[in-house]
Amino acid sequence: MKIDTLPSFDEVVKSLHQKKRTKHLLFGNGFSMAYDPKIFSYNALSTFIDDSKNELLITLFSIINTKNFELIMQQLDNFAEIAKVFSNDPELVQKIEKASLTLKNSLIEAVKELHPEHVFIIPEEKSQCCHSYLNDFLSNEGKVFSTNYDLLPYWVLMRNDSKIAIDGFGRELENPEEIIIGKDAEFSELRWGKYKEKQNVYYLHGALPIFDTGIDIVKEEYDSHHYILQKIHERMENKEYPIFVTAGSAKEKLNHIMHNKYLSFCYDELCKIEGSLVTFGFNFGEYDSHIIDAINKSAHYGARGGNKLHSVYIGVFSDENLEYIESIKSKFMCKVNLYNARTAKIWQ
C-alpha cells in the first residue's frame, strides 16, 4: 500500500458525516510543522541548543547522537537510576538530575525563543483556514486535543473570535461581599476550572501560556502593554515555568500528567471520548504509549455505561510513516483507518 492510495481528509470527514459519527481531533507536532518546519521541528530546537553554547547539552546531543529531546531525557533518567545502584557518590546522581532539569528548561526556552513574536505574524488567510479546520470539529460537538506546547491553536481561535472553543479558563469574582456595599467588582486572573464542564479544547502536555501557581492553574494573557510572549518571558525570568510534560518515557509522561490537576483532567477526557478520533501530525512513537492507552480506554467506555470510541483515523505523511503505523495497528483496541495527511489543508 502507498500513501497515494489512501483516502483524503475530505473523504474521511464525508464518511463520518454520513455515519452521523461525532469526530474529535488529536494533533501533534506535525500540526505546527505544517505551519513552519523551520521553527517547530526537533532540528530547529537542537540548533537552538547548539547556539546557546551550553557545553553540557551540546555534549549530550553529540554523545547520544540524536536531535530527539525525548530520547536524551529518557537516557538521562535511566543513567540516574543506574548511578543510584552502582555509585556511592550522591553528587553524581545530583549532576545527572541537574543536567536533565537544564535540558527540560532549555526546551521550554527554545520553544519560546523560536516562536513567532505575536498572533498577527500569522497571515490572515492561514489563520482563517486553520480556524475553519478546527471549527469543523468543535462546531459538531467534537473535542480538540493537542500535545503541542506552542501558541498556534490558541492564537488562531482567539484571533477568529471563536465562540465555541472553551479551554476551561475563566475569571472568578474576588470580592462578592464588597459588591453588596457598592464597591466595584474585582476579578481574578484567568484560572482553570470555572468552565471545565464545558471544556472542548485540551492541552494534554501543557502549553506556553499555562502555569501552575501551586494553588491554581492560570493562563497568561495579553494586556494593553505586552504581547503574551513578553509576559511569559517575564514569568520565566522569575523562575516560573509553563506546564510542560518533558519526560522521556511514556510512563514518566503519565506520572507527570497524573500529578497535575489540569493535565489529569485533560487526559481523563481523552479516555472517554466517543465516536471517532481523527489524528494529524501525531506519530504514535515509542514515547506515546500513554496516548494509545487513553484511546483504548475510550474504546471500552461503552462497557462502563457510555458510548464507546469506534474508530481512529490516523493521518500519515509518507510511505515510511504508513508502514510504521501499519506495524502498530494491533496496539489499538478500536478500528484503525489511515488517510493521506497531505490532503488536510490546515494552513492553506
Rank of each mutant, 00 (worst) to 15 (best):
L6V: 06
N68L: 11
G182V: 06
N307C: 10
E125F: 14
E252P: 09
E186D: 10
V336S: 04
H225R: 14
I215Y: 12
K19E: 08
E11K: 14
N160T: 10
N148A: 02
P209K: 02
L338M: 09
D136N: 14
Q94P: 04
I217D: 00
N255Y: 12
K345W: 11
K239G: 06
E274Y: 15
P209W: 00
V85D: 12
P242W: 00
N54G: 06
I273H: 01
I243H: 04
K53C: 09
V336P: 03
S87Y: 04
L157I: 06
I291S: 01
K196S: 09
D36G: 05
G168V: 03
H115V: 00
A80M: 06
F265S: 06
E141C: 08
Y35W: 08
V85M: 12
K253M: 08
Y301V: 07
L277Q: 03
G285I: 01
D216R: 13
V144P: 03
S264V: 09
I58P: 05
A303D: 15
F9M: 02
H131F: 15
C271K: 07
N283R: 12
D212I: 07
K14C: 10
M33H: 04
D36W: 03
E320M: 07
V218H: 05
E237L: 14
E234W: 11
L25N: 00
E70N: 03
D77V: 08
G285V: 00
S162A: 08
T66G: 04
D288T: 03
M236S: 10
S62M: 13
L25H: 00
I3N: 05
L173S: 09
T343H: 02
D223E: 09
E320D: 13
G285M: 01
L101C: 07
A99W: 06
D36C: 07
D150G: 01
L56N: 13
H17S: 14
N105S: 08
F40R: 03
E91W: 13
I210E: 01
E113V: 09
V144W: 02
E323M: 11
G306R: 11
K194F: 12
F284G: 02
D167H: 07
I295E: 04
N43M: 11
K219G: 02
S127V: 11
Q128V: 14
M236I: 14
I180E: 14
L190D: 02
E172N: 14
L263H: 05
L208W: 05
L56S: 11
G248S: 08
S146H: 02
A110W: 00
M236A: 07
E220Q: 15
R235S: 10
W347A: 05
F280E: 01
Y195N: 10
G193N: 02
K198P: 01
L173H: 09
G305M: 12
I180T: 10
